[in-house]
Design a protein around this nucleic acid. Structure first.
Lengths: 163, 163
DNA sequence: GTCTATAATTTGATAGAC
DNA sequence: GTCTATCAAATTATAGAC
């Protein structure tokens, strides 16, 4: 799952095969199929694990401000990219969603819905939902720019005016 | 090229094959290879044509303001999505860039660099470049949200505070 | 410019032994 | 849980005729 996650964040759903993963893990592809019946099922499982980890990392702190909530999301994205130069998994999968199984698409939608809902509540005020959409769009788009420029400075400039 | 562009905008580089395109065009895959030696070469050609069309559509009008320049970009993205529900081609390719040939990656980088340069000049002022990065990130990210929600309203909320 | 035919490889997935 | 072996299909790409 770690290897699959890296490959997806780098090159998308088509960016890995069971043989790739098996070779890198030192086993055979049939052994991967023992754990995940299909590639879609494995991708959905990897995505769910990624989402769980993400929402733990952005968990609200008592008495935080709207700016602090936005900063928590920003830092989660930023540290992810600066650690290994790879994108947000859901940004990649979201961009190529037209070619993914419903099984995977539903996990992607659930992730963004939960982000928007969580951010909206923590931002508060009249335009909370629109600001939540703006934050998520800027973070995901900023990741694309950073990966294309191969420079986290592109991300930093993109998100500088956010919070 | 029209068919390839649609497929890429829907499901990325892995979202089409020469046989797919040939079948939909009513010819054979060998005939597609007559025009494009490799899949990477075709993708690069499609991307360049897309970029040319894009920069024509956002060409500056005499005496425009910074807000009007941003609005031109916003409308180019918005109309593209609302026309057929598909993403910006460079948003898709940018997200999965880790698995693309250098031949394609260089076209992607050139597109974003030209966008940033063009927007920076038309926005002007002290933070022009940072604002340009913010605009591009929000537009690309907003496209991802719109395609996942299957609703242009997600894009509209994401970009509402831009200009 | 299109076709038939095919090469060479990769892919997702399965059966069954250990 | 891992293995060997294999299948059926798809993929990118090429050779050569019309």
């Amino acid at each position: 799952m770690n290897l699959a996650e890296d490959h997806i964040r780098d090159a998308g759903y088509a960016g890995f095969s069971f043989r790739d993963l098996a070779a890198e893990a030192g086993i055979k592809s049939a052994s991967v199929h023992h754990h995940f019946a299909t590639k879609s099922a494995m991708t959905a499982a990897v995505a769910k694990r990624y989402a769980d980890r993400f929402f733990l990392s952005v968990a609200p702190k008592p008495g935080e401000s709207a700016s602090e909530a936005i900063a928590a999301y920003r830092e989660a994205f930023r540290s992810s990219f600066s650690r290994d130069g790879r994108m947000c998994l859901f940004g990649v999968l979201g961009a190529e969603a037209g070619g993914l199984a419903p099984e995977v698409a539903s996990v992607i939608l659930a992730f963004f819905q939960r982000c928007i809902e969580d951010l909206s509540q923590r931002i508060g005020g009249t335009d909370a939902q629109a600001r939540a959409f703006q934050v998520m769009a800027t973070l995901e788009g900023g990741m694309i720019l950073a990966r294309i420029y191969k420079d986290v400075a592109a991300f930093d400039q993109a998100v500088a005016a956010l919070a």
